[in-house]
Design a protein around this nucleic acid. Structure first.
Length: 120
RNA sequence: UCAGAGGGCUGGACGAUCGCGAGUAGCAAUAUUCGAGGAAAGUCCGGGCUCCACAAAGGCAGGAUGCCGGGUAAUUCCCGGCCAGCGCAAGCUGAGGGACAGUGCCACAGAAAGGAAACUACUCGGGUGCGCCCGAGAAAAGCUGAAAGGGUGCGGUAAGAGCGCACCGCCGCGACGGUAACUGAGCGGGCAAGGUAAACCCCAUCCGGAGCAAGACCAAAUAGGGAUAACAUUAUGGCGCGCCAUUGCGUUGUUGUCCGGGUCGGUCGCUAGAGGUGUUUGGUAACAAACACAUUAGAGGAAUGAUCGUCACUUACUUCGGUAAGUACAAAACCCGGCUUAUAGGCCCUCUGACAAA
């Protein structure tokens, strides 16, 4: 298993699909999905950028910025036994890093308390 | 200096903090080294490599290529040349074999779009009711069109016509030169020969298929298969075939061990190369040879990022000290050689024309 600090990584399509069924919070710089996973007791995280936001260079940069923000914040605000998925948006690359951190922090705080998703 | 032609290079630099991938050392903590491009792109060609198929060889079908010579592992690539067209020039552009093997097509316009004949008009003769009609001649005139079956002039004639002649063009043969494409002196022919082969086609040459998700190896659980051992033997049973009955046929439980298969997963393939740089030699050149030197990107939801500082460049503002914003295109995925396309800014070399000066 690769390490991202103390965080685990999601790497299979089925794992991403699992998290998609959970809660989500959208901010202008990032969309975060989260779902408790009873199979383990770590914080695990995955990153996604669709072709909608640009070419390979743009997508890689977006994922790296999200990864950097994630490392600054998730060890403090993430909850054990939870899988997170960070989805890049078209503003992720251009947004100032401070604002990106702010987006991430606020979204994670809203996700702290489990509550039923509106659509489920 | 201005205008232009051809070719090449570069693709921001340095540092700090926190992180990422791989290698090496270490029991470990950790330390240390390396870590995207000229197009990595499009996946359009050519090869290597791997598996499959296949006697050799040839044929059919299909596809590709198409002036000549050279280079190369190979090519549709590259270099040199030829021819045609364009440009004052440097240079640029060209799928550049065959239209006497055959078939087809040539819109619109136009009398006619292809064995040259009909039509209009023309010339001569005859007739006439003066509107024209009949016969003969001829293919020079006919708005067109991308293209109209040689052109111009003179002779000739009833009017005309390569009917004859001169020049130009064309066709055939062809000296000299050149490896060849080609060139084309000279001789002959009155002239019969439209375009289109990125239309079918003909000719010549070449081509087996699939691709690293190729392919090789290790190999869990579950279900199912085979072998074997032990136990069980309920069997006049159960299950299946059959509408049902009788009859008939087939099959059999549990546990252990082994074999085969190869799924999830893992390992390899996986990076030292028809490679790079420099010098010398051969060659007009592409390129080749010799020598020297340096050379670890190898991921697998996929590593280079985030933040800050200094400098460089561009733009805007400016109190001339600075301030603000920006710095292209685009990221390896088995490896090489090409092609094509994208690309901010900057730099260099060679050549041509015009102007000015000497």
């Amino acid at each position: 298993m690769k390490k991202l600090g103390k965080l685990g990584l999601l790497r299979k399509r089925s794992e991403f699909l699992f998290v998609r069924e959970g809660r989500y919070q959208a901010r202008s710089g990032v969309v975060i999905q989260a779902r408790e996973n009873p199979d383990h007791n770590d914080i695990r995280v995955g990153f996604t950028a669709t072709k909608k936001i640009g070419n390979a260079v743009i997508r890689n940069r977006a994922k790296r910025r999200l990864r950097a923000a994630c490392q600054d914040i998730l060890p403090q605000l993430g909850q054990a036994g939870t899988d997170y998925v960070f989805i890049a948006r078209d503003k992720t690359v251009a947004r100032p890093y401070e604002a990106l951190l702010d987006d991430t922090e606020k979204a994670l705080k809203r996700l702290e308390k489990p509550r039923p998703s509106p659509e489920l």
